Simulated assay, not measured.
Amino acid sequence: MKRILFLIIRLLYRIPGWLLKIRSYNKHIDETTFEERFDFGQKMIRKINSKSRVRIHSFGQENLPAEQGYLIAPNHQGLFDALILFETHDKPFKAIVKKELMSVFVLGNVLKMLQFEAMDRENLRASMKVIKKATQEMSEGRNYVIFPEGTRCRQQNQMLEFKGGTFKTVIDAKKPIVPVALIDCYKVFDNNTIAPVDAQIHYLKPIFYDEYKDMNSTEIAHYVQECIEKCIAENENRF
Results as ranks from 00 to 15, higher is better:
residue 15 I to E: 11
residue 202 H to V: 03
residue 61 Q to S: 09
residue 179 P to A: 02
residue 155 Q to P: 11
residue 114 L to R: 03
residue 112 K to R: 14
residue 67 E to F: 08
residue 163 K to T: 00
residue 218 T to S: 10
residue 125 R to D: 06
residue 136 Q to K: 15
residue 46 R to N: 13
residue 51 K to C: 05
residue 132 K to A: 13
residue 25 Y to R: 04
residue 157 N to Q: 06
residue 156 Q to M: 05
residue 27 K to N: 12
residue 70 Y to D: 03
residue 139 S to T: 07
residue 138 M to I: 04
residue 34 F to W: 14
residue 61 Q to K: 15
residue 116 F to Y: 14
residue 56 I to F: 07
residue 25 Y to W: 10
residue 103 S to D: 02
residue 122 E to G: 15
residue 134 A to C: 09
residue 184 D to P: 03
residue 235 N to V: 04
residue 219 E to P: 08
residue 145 V to G: 02
residue 52 S to W: 11
residue 100 E to W: 14
residue 201 I to C: 09
residue 78 G to T: 05
residue 230 K to W: 10
residue 125 R to W: 12
residue 194 I to H: 11
residue 24 S to Q: 06
residue 70 Y to G: 04
residue 94 K to S: 06
residue 169 T to N: 06
residue 70 Y to H: 14
residue 85 L to R: 08
residue 139 S to N: 14
residue 198 D to V: 03
residue 51 K to G: 00
residue 25 Y to P: 05
residue 11 L to Y: 06
residue 21 K to Y: 00
residue 86 F to D: 01
residue 81 D to Q: 06
residue 202 H to P: 09
residue 94 K to E: 06
residue 137 E to L: 14
residue 28 H to M: 01
residue 77 Q to N: 09
residue 113 M to D: 09
residue 116 F to M: 13
residue 67 E to K: 06
residue 17 G to E: 11
residue 28 H to K: 07
residue 152 R to E: 00
residue 20 L to V: 14
residue 193 T to E: 15
residue 104 V to M: 13
residue 202 H to I: 04
residue 13 Y to L: 00
residue 14 R to H: 05
residue 130 V to G: 03
residue 82 A to C: 07
residue 233 A to H: 12
residue 121 R to H: 10
residue 47 K to Y: 13
residue 230 K to A: 11
residue 181 A to W: 13
residue 231 C to D: 08
residue 139 S to Y: 01
residue 64 L to W: 00
residue 116 F to E: 00
residue 165 G to N: 11
residue 145 V to H: 10
residue 225 Q to V: 05
residue 86 F to W: 10
residue 59 F to M: 13
residue 95 A to I: 08
residue 145 V to F: 12
residue 77 Q to C: 03
residue 5 L to F: 15
residue 131 I to K: 15
residue 51 K to V: 01
residue 52 S to K: 07
